[in-house]
Amino acid sequence: MIIARESNINSNLVAGAIIAGAYFGDRASPMSSSANLVATITQTKLYVNLKNMMITGWLPFLAASFVYLVLSISNPIAVTDNILLTEIPKVFNLDLFVLLPAFIILLLSLLQIEVKVTLFFSIITSLIIGIVLQKYSLVQLLNYAVYGFNLDISSPLTSILKGGGIIDMLKVSIVVIISTALAGMIAGTRVLEFVEVFLEKSKSRSRLFLGTIVIGTAAAAFGCTQTIAILLTQQLVQESYHQKLDNYQLALDLENTVVVISPLIPWNIAGLVPATVLMTDWKFIPYTFYLYFLPIFSLIHFQKNYSKKVFGF
């Protein structure tokens, strides 16, 4: 994103590619919180689900990669002034020790240490590095944590390396608070009950999957968080899947619908948080091709198989 802002390329395109790539990696990781949640609520094995996701995800991945390749060729990054390589070493100490916080997160995640503990050690390490290597005071670091980072010296990097902080995340926190109230209202009032009726009458795999897309989209819009959207969708569709399919198909359809649809909702935390981190807004959504290729390609696949079964072609 720093390089994109330094050039004349559409930064929303880059943000969309980054977020889509992050979700591709999330679907392949045993550390994924959404994958673990889906495996838990559907009572399925995580690694079987990961394998199924790779099987259904390779074609959308190739299609999205091709689109990004075309866009990359037609929108080359033209950096007018290569200040990153020359200016960053002047401002920061680039000793290998600065990689320690990231290494700690990776190591403790592989050891399946609780997330809060992992983040605690990573933050403490970052504070030590900031004080010892980068020569910032504790007061400065705490100020950056609350109000976001900005360079205190005159540098060409001043307009590039800025942002973040707790204050910038307040709108995300407000959305989380509101979404917890909405989730209870949705479940209690049964406003999506009509879709359950649609699913119960579904005779084809494609229609069942389409119903899951509809419920997943509504749950992601009203629930405002990926977690709540997954839980709501699972509650509403599980009975229909138990009657017609098995838990592994339910888990796969949740992964191919509500999990990747959530970040496509502008106010959903799944997309709002990475957009905030990348200092962009909802305009990245049209460029997250992989995220909407997944449900579209899956629906086409199910519809094609249904047509072969019914019409013989």
Score class of each variant (00 low, 15 high):
V117L: 15
Y147S: 14
S159A: 13
S179K: 02
D152K: 13
G165M: 12
L161C: 03
L170G: 02
G184Q: 08
V191L: 13
L127V: 14
I113K: 08
K171W: 11
I178F: 06
L170Y: 09
L107H: 03
I113R: 06
I113C: 07
D152H: 13
F103T: 13
G163Q: 05
E193K: 14
A181E: 09
L110Y: 14
V195D: 02
E196N: 12
N150M: 08
L110C: 10
M169D: 03
I178A: 11
G163R: 03
L106P: 00
L107F: 15
V195Y: 08
I104G: 00
I123R: 07
M169A: 10
V115H: 12
I167Q: 11
I178P: 00
S109H: 04
I123V: 15
F194R: 12
I174R: 06
V172E: 03
I186Y: 05
T189G: 00
V176E: 01
S109C: 12
K171A: 04
N150V: 11
I174T: 08
Y147V: 05
L157K: 02
T158G: 00
A183C: 09
L141V: 11
L127R: 04
M185Q: 06
F198A: 03
G163D: 07
K171R: 13
V176Q: 02
E200P: 00
L127T: 06
L108K: 05
D168Q: 14
L161F: 14
L138T: 11
V139T: 14
K162Y: 10
I166F: 15
M169F: 12
G164N: 07
V197C: 02
S159P: 00
S126N: 08
Q140I: 05
E196D: 11
Q140P: 02
T158I: 04
I123W: 11
S109N: 10
M185R: 09
G164Y: 06
S137H: 08
S159H: 07
Y147C: 04
T180F: 13
E196A: 07
G164A: 09
E114M: 05
F121I: 10
I131E: 03
L192P: 00
F198E: 04
M185V: 14
G163S: 09
V197Q: 06
F198Y: 15
I177T: 05
S159Y: 06
